[in-house]
Simulated scan of single mutants.
Amino acid sequence: MLSSCDDYQATKNCKSEERKTPKQQRTATEGACNIAGDIARAVAVLTAREERTIESDEPGVYPLNGKKGRVLIINNSFYDENRDENPHSRKPACDKDVENMVNLSMFLGCDLYGDKAHLDKSAEEMRTFLKGISRISKNHCSFVVIIIMTHGNLLKDESEKQEIEVLYGNNGETDYIKRKEIDNMFQNDVAVSLQGIPKFFIYQCCRGKIHMEAIDSQIETDDIETDGITVPIFSDIVTINSTLPGHIAYKDGDGSLLITSINTIFRKHGRKKHVLDLLTMVNSEMLKNLRSYRQSHQSLETILIKPMSVLESCLVKHFYLTE
């Protein structure tokens, strides 16, 4: 019962109802229904807020404070319209990826860095954009998202005597930026103005040459405390990679598998769940993909692949994209 009237008040109201005309009674009934509807809607809103608060008691929530997120989108297509052949072209999949990420950013109420997606950029231009967004003040945004869609690989670095991950600029094999270089730009002692707010990275690129082949399954069917003075070198960062280190990333005519999965999950659940839950759901969505893949343009031989995205996080609170 929505009414809080006691028996006396209810009896009094019933007697007065008997004296009303049918038209007055209908008006009163409609008014009561409207009030009941308003109360039900208010209860639903309060319940939703309470559920989020309860879920978010541990380990806390990154505050949005009415500010929007800022999204940097970089996409390299490696397509040259003046060439007869473009064996390294990422089109048309990458065009769909850009469309999905731009529309998703708008759907979630975020602002695009530079008011657009940045297409076919050299490594040096990529550095400029990355340094730019790393210097944004957290007074102007509640979180930043960096989406890089390009070719990538593992290269031997003679100076470091080890293999390093690189992301290619649009100008070819010698035009690249080291993944480590990007990581360093967002250290707490470098990106000082972004300390304490989430930095969300989405990498759609290969990380080597190894295929993610499918195998047969054998499975049967407190609040964070700190000293208040220091911060770690890396914190408040979450990254989703399109593939494991050393492995290939995949796409089809509808877009890259990771970007398509992110678009699907974030559109369904992005306004109510926090990012780590969303990305776990993205991993689950990726699990649905079993594809045949031709190993080279020259060969007709195919293998079965089972792609999987890789999540890395040093978030210290729940990270919501909307209030």
Rank of each mutant, 00 (worst) to 15 (best):
S284T: 10
C5T: 09
Y250G: 00
P22W: 03
D277A: 13
D7E: 11
R179P: 02
L315D: 01
D84E: 14
P307V: 06
G132M: 06
I240N: 02
I224H: 09
A48E: 15
Q298I: 13
K273Q: 08
E160F: 06
E165T: 11
N65F: 08
I259S: 00
T174D: 13
S105W: 00
S235C: 06
L315A: 11
K317Q: 08
N184Y: 05
A44M: 13
K138Y: 02
L2P: 04
K12C: 11
D189L: 03
I262K: 02
C5I: 07
L167A: 03
D189T: 09
K272R: 15
R70D: 09
I54V: 13
K12T: 15
H118V: 06
V43L: 13
G132A: 04
T11P: 01
E220N: 09
K161F: 07
C94P: 00
K180C: 00
K15Y: 11
S137W: 07
H140Y: 12
V45S: 11
I237Q: 02
L311R: 03
L321Q: 02
C94I: 14
Q9G: 05
I233S: 11
K288D: 09
L112P: 04
I146S: 00
D80N: 10
S309N: 04
G255T: 00
A93R: 01
R127I: 15
H269W: 07
D115H: 10
Q25V: 05
H297S: 15
P92F: 00
S56Q: 11
K317L: 05
I303W: 05
A214E: 09
P59G: 07
L155E: 13
R271H: 14
C5S: 14
T47H: 07
K209H: 14
F129E: 06
I262M: 10
Q195I: 08
S292I: 03
T174I: 09
T221V: 09
T11W: 09
G246M: 02
F107E: 06
K91A: 08
A32I: 11
Q24Y: 06
S242N: 06
F186H: 03
L108P: 03
C205R: 02
L64N: 09
L290E: 14
E17G: 13
K156E: 14
D227F: 06
Y62G: 01
T47L: 08
E17R: 13
D227T: 04
N34L: 10
N34I: 08
A10E: 11
A214W: 10
E173K: 08
F107G: 00
V61M: 06
Q25T: 03
K273H: 12
E312Q: 10
K15E: 12
L258V: 01
I136W: 04
D183Y: 15
A93H: 03
K138H: 07
V282F: 04
R52T: 10
L311T: 11
F201A: 04
L287I: 08
R127V: 14
Y203G: 08
R291Q: 12
D183S: 13
K121R: 13
I305L: 10
V316F: 05
Y293M: 04
L167D: 04
D223S: 12
R179G: 05
T260K: 08
A249C: 05
S235K: 00
T322A: 03
L194I: 05
N170W: 01
